Computed example of a mutant assay.
Amino acid sequence: MVKVPEGTTVHDLYSGQVLADLLVSGDRWLAGDGGRGGRGNAKFLSNRRRAPSFAEQGEEGEERWLRLELRLMADVALVGFPNAGKSTLISRISAAKPRIADYPFTTLEPSLGVVRPEGRTEFVVADIPGLIEGASDGRGLGHRFLRHIERARVLLIMLDLAPTAERAPDEQLSVLLGELEAYKPDLLDRPRVVVGSRADVTETSEDFDGDRLSAMTGEGLDPLVHRLADLVVQARETVVRRPSVVVHRPEPVDIAVERGEDGTWEINDRRVKLVTNLNDLTNFEALDYLHERLKNMGVDRALSRAGVREGETVRIGRLEFDYEE
């Protein structure tokens, strides 16, 4: 058993197919079936076989290569351009200690902080590395950053009001919302709060008439925390029914026999291969028992229907033999 954090997504390494999404504590997923143990010789006692000299071998377990991806589980995600003050904010409202510096892309890995407002429900905030235009196409490691926003209940969009910002606040908002929509359209349906950050280094202007905050001076922090707490409580009360996926795998009506490129006939039926691989193929008595089992399972009939001729090679799992009618 491999224990993983909540929010782990399991992909097939080669196809990229999503195999499982482990969202909450207790979620489990069977990555591969283990091999079944073989039966001892006493299980093969019969009137004809008084002292069996063979036993089944253990079955080989299923093997597959997987890629595990962790997407943060947070109540609030901080979204903004690089150097918009997100790390400073999370360091002021929680005990998180992210790296803070006066240059873009200081934050390269998301960090979590727990906010505990007095008398209110505590919630988790994720400091997401800054997004840039084209992030939804992977620019600036955009996909690595955007995936952590997917599971946030509330989005806090921070617009840089500093004079050094390359874009006006309304243009920043347009770009950020556009990137979120391009990556995953339903992100725009999440509750969100839009604030102007770094208000301590700018003068009041007509470019932005929304709420302002300064993580450095503390301006606007308390009202913002309480507003976020209200939205988090509302979001948690909205129970989203998790979709269930039922995979139907009907049993094949007959044993499939296929001819390979090298001319060898091969049986890929899982039940037949299981019976074959469990037996000791070096023991003549075990081979006699195996032939009887395969005949009762309809293997001889399937080979005849497929047009296998006498003397042609047939492969079943680890067993390879020349067909005889």
Rank of each mutant, 00 (worst) to 15 (best):
S197W: 03
S197G: 10
R198I: 04
D200A: 11
T202H: 09
E203W: 03
E203R: 15
T204R: 15
E206I: 04
D207F: 00
D207A: 14
D207T: 11
F208S: 02
G210H: 03
S214T: 05
S214W: 05
A215I: 04
G218M: 10
G218T: 03
G218A: 05
E219R: 14
E219I: 02
L221T: 05
D222W: 08
D222F: 13
D222M: 07
D222Q: 14
L224E: 01
L224I: 08
H226C: 03
H226V: 11
R227K: 13
R227W: 01
R227G: 05
L228Y: 08
L231N: 01
V232E: 06
V232R: 08
V233F: 02
Q234K: 15
A235W: 01
R236L: 15
E237P: 00
E237F: 10
T238S: 07
V239L: 12
V240H: 02
R241P: 09
R241M: 10
R242N: 12
R242D: 12
R242H: 12
P243A: 14
S244A: 12
S244L: 15
S244T: 15
V246Q: 10
V246W: 11
V246G: 06
V247H: 13
V247L: 12
V247C: 05
V247A: 11
V247G: 00
R249C: 07
R249Q: 13
P250I: 02
E251T: 13
E251A: 15
E251W: 05
E251K: 13
P252V: 01
P252D: 01
P252I: 01
V253R: 15
D254W: 02
D254A: 14
I255C: 10
I255R: 10
V257N: 12
G260Y: 09
G260C: 07
E261Q: 13
E261K: 14
E261A: 15
G263M: 11
T264E: 14
W265Q: 06
W265P: 09
W265D: 04
E266N: 11
I267Y: 05
I267G: 02
D269L: 06
R270K: 13
R271H: 15
R271M: 10
K273N: 10
L274H: 10
V275C: 06
V275W: 04
T282I: 00
T282G: 02
N283T: 05
Y289Q: 04
L290Y: 02
L290C: 04
E292H: 13
E292D: 12
R293L: 06
R293W: 01
L294W: 09
K295R: 12
N296Y: 08
N296V: 10
M297E: 10
M297F: 02
G298D: 07
G298P: 05
G298A: 00
D300E: 14
R301V: 11
A302P: 03
A302C: 00
L303D: 08
S304E: 15
S304M: 11
R305P: 01
E312A: 08
E312H: 07
